[in-house]
Amino acid sequence: MKNDLNMDSRRSFIIKLLGISGGILAIIISIPVIGVFLEPLARKKPEMWRSVGNVDKFKTGETVLVDFPNSSSLPWTGTVSKTASWLRRVSDTQFIAFSVHCTHLGCPVHWLPDAEIFLCPCHGGVFNKDGSYAAGPPPKDLSQYPVRIEKNEVQILASPIPITTL
């Protein structure tokens, strides 16, 4: 009788022990699995200055499309690794690099040089030449990438796709 009880409690102890170690193992395995899923958050924000051409290439007052490799390309990414930007030369020394992504839902805006507006093909959002909101659904002004002039080259800071948040 006493022996049985002993057996019982021993068995339940072992089962508990197994349960706990199984649980711990499950957690150990889940960490990398869930980790890979969430990994984009942990990757450090890649930012790189990319040259898009000599300063003289751009005329004051004009806005042109430039492209450059984005900041997080991997060797096998192919053409998809590039990003575009609408580059506006405001004055001799001042450039603005607009993201091509409409702040509404990210569609690529078109620059219309004669009308001097950016127009979005998706839901008809409109921005002024300085990127400010003009009409349609977009909730805010066009985003900009940092620009600098280095050794007479215009350089744009390749940065994350701007995501409009609430």
Binding site: P40, K45, N70, S72, L74, P75, T77, S159, P160, I161
Partner: peptide, 10 residues
Amino acid sequence: IFLGGETITG
């Protein structure tokens, strides 16, 4: 998380 990075990546 959805895009797998800050931009469209490999």
